[in-house]
Write a protein that binds this DNA or RNA. Structure first.
Length: 559
RNA sequence: GGCCCGUUGGUCAAGCGGUUAAGACACCGCCCUUUCACGGCGGUAACAGCAGUUCGAUUCUGCUACGGGUCACCA
């Protein structure tokens, strides 16, 4: 077989050499130790939690080391591509504070364009580059074409390959595949010419020289020392439309773009042998790899499953809908990423997570379960540290989108809303009422509208309650300091036979009709409509005299 | 089914041959408290199993079990 001739036959239009291409991609001028990482999504949908995870690692590693973090769009499968997905991906990532130094970006016209000199950053636009390397491999005798007729191709596209194999016996299928592969290798130059003349499409397959009995040592930055069986599968390099497969594009792009660290899910581990082979054939130096464990979820049977796109809690846009602040989600991700993050954060409560010295060694090598309880806890802490102004702005923005009527109320008087969120905020022990913005309404919605009123517990008579409320109204003076205000409530309690001192009440409950706690509750329900609410004195202060009196009077009227 | 990866409490996890096996979340109890939220104190709860190496294994090795992943002209 004349490989050079075959190469010319297969790629008549490719005139450049790999050297020509290399010249276009000069080595990056970066400080010692700087890492170059990338996020390389296929534009087939939204960003999901399992994707944000490795992305955050890449971003941290690059920016922490003074390196480059870039975005490359792996749009090599036109069939699966979703219109507008790439733009959505970029916007979502931006929302979570992930910024790219280079790569595909959204231009001023809202369309995707390239920024940086290592592009193009969309694989669909890199066809000619891949073909140069493909031609080289053919010329070297390391790749060969496999032709199919158009009819065969259509038939292949029609069946679900994976389902088909699943139905078959694995062993039988693999033996058949192996035989077909060996046969395909024997193609002659005459057959190639004939097929080409007939216009039959071909895929380019690698000629694998590996022996799976032999293991090659490989060090993964997370998994540690691994033993990878050599690849003996003639996997596809170029599909029949001339577009590369992931494997081929990965080798060419990450080499040319100067990626130093590839961060990807551990589902890629089984194809690592292919990549090792490809880098060797191409004469490229391999980047370092980090294969990270998948985020898991629990299925109906209580078994762990990879968190995939369709799952609850997978779509990052769902978090926005649920009212999780990006800062909270990022914080949660950091706790999962590095086990010592929480400790660091407790010691540095005011520093942004980007100050945390992220360490690869501290990463877990087994898959963790997504835990909403933990997310909520982290989230409450993050929000409790925000200023009232910040909370007001974020809750209002969220509500305007997901609960417009409530959003209107919040926006009507920002000073009023801010005063509400200032309750118990600041200081050493801030309130932690909010895990999501959606928690705001049940927490403080009564300020705007005590629509639903909790019922008074049955053991209290309407007469007692009414007497307490009337008594309160009689002495109510909004100018009172908190102590004076509470003393008056105590006085009311005494008048109606309720204990004004909890110790006395607890010592002998039977001596009283109830306690000051109950009287406070009568008032709380009247004013807030709720059995539980933030500090009542402050609530009344914010509500103002007129509204407070109106609400208490309204309750009296209803009793 | 072959290959690969993994396995410390309900969850996330420290631990790198000798520890009373951290801590966080969740849960329970007590305290603080006019409710709630916060905070404080305490509690329940774990090295998948079996061999081997060793004076000594959670830690090293092997096997088994279980879980996960992968085996496309998808990434």
């Amino acid at each position: 077989m004349d490989h050079a001739r075959l190469a010319d036959l297969l790629f008549p239009n490719v005139t450049r050499t790999p050297e020509d291409i290399e010249a276009l991609y000069p080595p990056r001028q970066l400080p010692e130790g700087a890492k170059v990482t990338r996020f390389a999504p296929s534009p087939t949908g939204f960003v999901h939690f399992g994707g944000l995870f490795p992305t955050t690692i890449g971003e941290r590693l690059a920016h922490q080391s003074g390196g480059v973090f870039y975005l490359r769009i792996e749009d090599t499968d036109a069939k699966r591509e979703v219109e507008g997905a790439a733009e959505g991906l970029i916007r979502t990532l931006e929302h979570y504070g992930i910024h790219f130094d280079e790569g595909a970006v959204i231009g001023e016209d809202g369309k995707i364009c390239d920024r940086g000199i290592y592009g193009p950053y969309r694989q669909s636009q890199r066809g000619p580059i891949y073909h140069v390397y493909a031609k080289q491999l053919v010329a070297l005798g390391k790749a060969y074409p496999v032709f199919t007729t158009k009819e065969e191709l259509e038939a292949m596209n029609a069946v679900d390959k994976k389902a088909e194999i699943k139905a078959k016996d694995w062993h039988e299928d693999q033996t058949a595949q192996r035989e077909a592969m060996l046969r395909a290798r024997e193609i002659t130059i005459e057959e190639v010419e004939k097929n080409l003349a007939e216009g039959n499409p071909f895929v380019l397959r690698i000629l694998a020289d590996g022996d799976p009995e032999k293991k090659v040592p490989f060090t993964d930055l997370i998994k540690g020392k691994l033993e990878i069986p050599e690849n003996d599968e003639d996997f596809v390099l170029l599909k029949s439309d001339g577009i590369p497969t992931y494997h081929f594009a990965h080798a060419v792009d990450d080499h040319l773009m100067g990626t130093t660290h590839v961060i990807r899910g551990e589902e890629w581990l089984p194809s690592l042998a292919k990549h090792i082979m490809l880098f060797r054939y191409l004469g490229f130096r391999m980047p370092k790899y980090m294969h990270i464990a998948q985020i898991m979820r629990l299925d109906e049977n209580g078994n762990k499953k990879k968190l995939s796109k369709r799952d609850m809690g997978a779509n990052m846009d769902d978090y926005s809908r649920m009212g999780y602040a990006p800062a909270c989600v990022c914080e949660y991700i950091m706790t999962l990423l590095n086990s010592n993050y929480e400790e660091w954060h407790m010691q540095n409560p005011d520093k942004p997570y980007t100050d945390f010295p992220f360490n690869i060694k501290k990463m877990s090598n087994s898959g963790c379960l997504f835990d909403f309880d933990k997310l909520n806890d982290v989230s409450k802490n993050v929000i409790s540290r925000m200023s009232a102004e910040e909370v007001t702005a974020l809750v209002t923005a969220w509500a305007k989108e997901y609960d417009p009527a409530f959003g209107e109320q919040l926006a009507k008087d920002p000073a009023f809303t801010t005063a509400i969120f200032a309750i118990g905020r600041g200081g050493k022990k801030p309130r932690k009422d909010l895990a999501t913005w959606a928690d705001a309404k049940p927490y403080m919605g009564f300020f705007f509208d005590p629509a639903q009123t909790d019922a008074y517990p049955e053991q209290f008579s309407s007469e007692d309650i009414k007497a307490a409320l009337v008594g309160f109204l009689g002495g109510y003076d909004p100018a009172d300091e908190m102590n004076a205000w509470f003393d008056k409530i105590k006085a009311v309690a005494r008048e109606i036979g309720y204990a004004d001192d909890m110790k006395a009440y607890k010592a002998d409950p039977s001596a009283f009709r109830g306690s000051i706690a109950d009287v406070s509750m009568f008032l709380r329900v009247a004013v807030t409509g709720k059995l539980n609410a933030p500090d009542l004195y402050t609530v009344m202060q914010i509500l103002g005299k007129d509204e407070t009196v109106r609400r208490v009077q309204s309750m009296i009227d209803r009793l």
